[in-house]
Lab assay of single mutants.
Amino acid sequence: MQRVNMIMAESPGLITICLLGYLLSAECTVFLDHENANKILNRPKRYNSGKLEEFVQGNLERECMEEKCSFEEAREVFENTERTTEFWKQYVDGDQCESNPCLNGGSCKDDINSYECWCPFGFEGKNCELDVTCNIKNGRCEQFCKNSADNKVVCSCTEGYRLAENQKSCEPAVPFPCGRVSVSQTSKLTRAETVFPDVDYVNSTEAETILDNITQSTQSFNDFTRVVGGEDAKPGQFPWQVVLNGKVDAFCGGSIVNEKWIVTAAHCVETGVKITVVAGEHNIEETEHTEQKRNVIRIIPHHNYNAAINKYNHDIALLELDEPLVLNSYVTPICIADKEYTNIFLKFGSGYVSGWGRVFHKGRSALVLQYLRVPLVDRATCLRSTKFTIYNNMFCAGFHEGGRDSCQGDSGGPHVTEVEGTSFLTGIISWGEECAMKGKYGIYTKVSRYVNWIKEKTKLT
């Protein structure tokens, strides 16, 4: 034993070699072989497995989906700052455009905790909710729209109204504003409101030439003092309507412009014939205590009207009353817009006519005020429907199939267009061939041609 100890002390290297040989010859039971080890760690190889990531292109799944990435790591994937920024906006807080917040056709661009709407022409605001041009839906104005110097929408209202708090709607500024039905039992019968379409306001006024200088022999019209197929109006439903009495009662109609003036057809009036105007009328054979009678003290036909040349060209006249009318729910003026808007309103496509005229061709006159909704007829169809001249200051309205029309005794009465609950004068009943005849239409004086003249002559002093 002493000898062994001496050998170990003198030859430590020998001992180490012996131990190493023993270990190498022993069977290893701690580690699995290569094949079995792979069965336990069965993990798919990654895209760049075996390579240094710093030297390969980034992978979106590896960089940002398996674990949260930084902007720089995302930049490695896209290799483009702009594309990385677009991805980053949604990656950080989701897609803010998912709810489609942009209105009126706006395009949404996502941002971090926010979004941006790219608005089409005519709109602005956070969600493109603000109209900035009158060309689109009248700028959301209830009545009139004008573009300011910086191309912003400025709404306005006709006389007797003021802008509401929203700067879009119009509200009454006087007790009985024009064009409004205020009798409670008839307010439910107000005709369907007309909503502004998209309009090209630059070209809204037709490029028409008034044929002022045409000389033409007097034409022989049949029954051209021209509501057939209409309905009984309720008291106060058309408070701007008046009836004219002269040699015979209810020979023509008219509309209240203001307390002192009536507008009617020029062919209705004769110099030297006494005319009485009755406002607030409903049943011409009954006294309903809503009527107001006034005498006409002055007749002003349009300066281009000449019955000797043509009885229905420039067929418009103004009547001055001896005493002002007292405005109330049964006696209310009709609204008159400017030339541009009167023309736009007419193009809405349908209007209402009213009167006490004959209820059928050569038949009896109506006792109760009649009204009828009539569609506008395109000019080409209008011209083809008659052998008589249709001037540019006239328009056609009615039904091709016949059966409904204005008729004798309705002449001078109103053709009105309702705009968001307020009625505007767009025409004056003038003439036609018979009444409600198939293929024939009622012919009306186009008020847009005469609004400046009306307003100039009827100013209240």
Results as ranks from 00 to 15, higher is better:
Cys382Met: 02
Thr264Pro: 00
Lys311Val: 07
Glu27Ala: 07
Gly125Trp: 01
Ile256Ala: 00
Gly427Tyr: 01
Asn328His: 02
Gly398Ala: 05
Gly94Val: 09
Asn393Ala: 05
Ala337Cys: 02
Phe238Met: 10
Val377Ile: 12
Tyr341Ala: 11
Gly439Met: 04
Lys68Glu: 08
Ser423Gln: 09
Arg226Asp: 10
Thr287Trp: 11
Asn393Asp: 07
Gly125Ile: 00
Pro12Thr: 13
Leu103Asp: 12
Gly122Lys: 04
Val263Glu: 00
Asn222Met: 14
Thr158Val: 11
Met8Ala: 14
Met6Lys: 13
Cys97Ile: 02
Leu372Asn: 11
Glu73His: 09
Lys234Leu: 12
Asn393Ser: 13
Ser385Asn: 14
Ser217Tyr: 10
Asn452Cys: 05
Gly246Asn: 03
Cys155Val: 01
Leu211Ser: 12
Ile299Phe: 09
Asn100Gln: 13
Lys152Pro: 06
Pro197Leu: 11
Met394Tyr: 05
Gln143Cys: 00
Gly442Ser: 08
Ile15Ser: 04
Lys68His: 10
Phe121Lys: 13
Glu124Asn: 12
Glu116Lys: 15
Glu159Leu: 07
Asn5Phe: 13
Ile454Arg: 00
Gly363Trp: 06
Thr422Ile: 14
Asn295Cys: 02
Thr209Ala: 09
Glu76Leu: 09
Glu420Ser: 14
Val447Gly: 02
Val447Pro: 03
Val353Tyr: 04
Lys362Gly: 13
Val243Asn: 04
Pro375Ile: 12
Phe224Tyr: 11
Ile344Asp: 14
Trp88Arg: 15
Arg180Cys: 03
Leu376Glu: 03
Ile256Tyr: 00
Glu86Asp: 09
Gly409Arg: 09
Tyr441His: 06
Lys457Met: 12
Gly402Ala: 13
Cys97Arg: 02
Asn393Cys: 03
Glu281Gly: 10
Ser25Leu: 14
Ala173Cys: 05
Ser182Trp: 09
Glu10Gln: 07
Lys68Ile: 08
Gln241Arg: 06
Trp88Leu: 15
Gln408Ile: 14
Pro301Ser: 08
Ile316Trp: 01
Ile344Arg: 11
Ser184Asp: 13
Glu286Gln: 12
Lys168Trp: 10
Asn222Gly: 13
Glu142Gly: 07
Ser354Arg: 08
Asn222Asp: 09
Ala149Thr: 12
Leu14Trp: 11
Trp431Gln: 15
Phe144Val: 01
Leu367Cys: 07
Val248Ile: 11
Val153Leu: 06
Pro324Glu: 06
Phe399Met: 08
Asn104Leu: 02
Leu367Ala: 14
Arg373Thr: 13
Leu19Ala: 05
Lys89Ala: 10
Asn135Ile: 13
Arg294Val: 02
Gly398Leu: 04
Cys170Val: 00
Gly432Phe: 04
Glu171Val: 07
Ser11Val: 14
Leu460Gly: 07
Phe395Gln: 01
Gly363His: 12
Gly105Tyr: 07
Phe78Thr: 03
Asn295Lys: 02
Leu244Ser: 00
Arg3Thr: 06
His267Leu: 02
Val154Ser: 11
Asn343Pro: 02
Val174His: 06
Phe55Thr: 15
Ser411Pro: 08
Ile15Phe: 05
Glu124Gly: 15
Cys382His: 02
Glu159Asp: 11
Val359Cys: 07
Thr225Cys: 05
Phe176Glu: 03
Ser184Glu: 12
Val56Tyr: 08
Val183Ser: 10
Glu270Thr: 05
Ile284Tyr: 08
Arg75Gln: 06
Val202Phe: 12
Cys108Trp: 00
Ser114Ile: 06
Lys339Glu: 10
Pro235Val: 06
Cys252Glu: 00
Ile262Tyr: 00
Asp223Lys: 08
Val77Trp: 08
Gly272Leu: 03
Ser11Met: 15
Asp131Gly: 13
Cys170Arg: 01
Ile429Leu: 12
His267Met: 03
Gly355Arg: 15
Cys28Asp: 02
Glu98Trp: 08
Val181Asp: 06
Ile429Cys: 06
Ala308Glu: 13
Asp150Glu: 10
Asn166Val: 00
Tyr450Phe: 04
Val174Ile: 09
Arg294His: 01
Ile112Gly: 15
Glu433Ile: 04
Gln408Met: 11
Leu321Trp: 00
Val4Ala: 11
Ala233Lys: 05
Ser187Trp: 10
Ser204Arg: 11
Asp200Ile: 11
Asp410Phe: 07
Ser204Pro: 10
Phe71Trp: 11
Ala233Gln: 06
Leu163Val: 09
Gln219Asp: 06
Lys152Asp: 13
Asn304Ile: 03
Leu460His: 09
Tyr391Arg: 14
Arg379Asn: 04
Thr84Lys: 12
Met437Gly: 14
Gly402Tyr: 15
Ser411Glu: 12
Gly398Ser: 05
Cys108Ala: 00
Leu367His: 13
Phe388Lys: 14
Leu369Thr: 14
Ala9Trp: 15
Arg379Ala: 07
Lys168Phe: 15
Lys51Ala: 15
Lys152Cys: 05
Ile112Leu: 15
Ser204Tyr: 12
Pro44Gly: 10
Gln241Ser: 05
Ala337His: 01
Ile336Thr: 03
Thr445Arg: 00
Lys247Leu: 03
Asn452Trp: 05
Gly363Arg: 05
Leu23Asp: 02
Asp93Val: 15
Leu321Lys: 00
Ile443Glu: 02
Glu10Asp: 09
Tyr161Pro: 01
Val368Ile: 15
Cys97Gln: 02
Ser70Gly: 13
Val451Cys: 08
Arg83His: 15
Ile390Asn: 14
Asn36Thr: 09
Asp405Val: 05
Gly398Pro: 03
Glu323Cys: 04
Asn258Thr: 05
Gln219Lys: 09
Asn48Lys: 10
Glu434Gln: 09
Phe31Ser: 15
Glu320Gly: 03
Phe144Asp: 00
Asn306Cys: 04
Asp405Leu: 14
Tyr330Trp: 11
Arg373Met: 07
Val202Ala: 09
Ser329Gln: 08
Pro44Leu: 10
His400Asn: 09
Ser217Lys: 06
Asp410Gln: 15
Arg191Leu: 12
Pro414Thr: 10
Ile300Leu: 08
Val30Arg: 14
Glu35Ser: 12
Ile214Lys: 12
Asn393Gly: 13
Lys387Pro: 07
Ala317Arg: 00
Gly403Glu: 15
Thr461Asn: 15
Thr271Ile: 09
Lys260Val: 03
Lys440Gln: 12
Pro333Ile: 00
Glu208Gly: 05
Leu32Phe: 13
Val416Tyr: 10
Ser107Asn: 11
Asn203Gly: 07
Cys170Asn: 01
Tyr441Val: 12
Ala436Trp: 07
Glu86Arg: 15
Ala233Cys: 04
Asn343Lys: 04
Gly272Asn: 03
Ser169Tyr: 06
Val56Met: 07
Asn304Pro: 02
Ala266Gly: 04
Glu79Asp: 15
Pro172Gln: 08
Ile210Trp: 13
Gly50Ala: 13
Phe424Asp: 00
Ala380Asn: 06
Ser430Asp: 02
Tyr22Phe: 15
Asn245Tyr: 03
Arg162Tyr: 11
Cys18Arg: 02
Trp118Asn: 13
Gly403Tyr: 13
Ser220His: 07
Trp88Ile: 07
Arg62Thr: 13
Cys396Tyr: 01
His303Gly: 08
Val273Gly: 02
Tyr312His: 08
Glu418Met: 11
Glu171Arg: 08
Cys97Tyr: 01
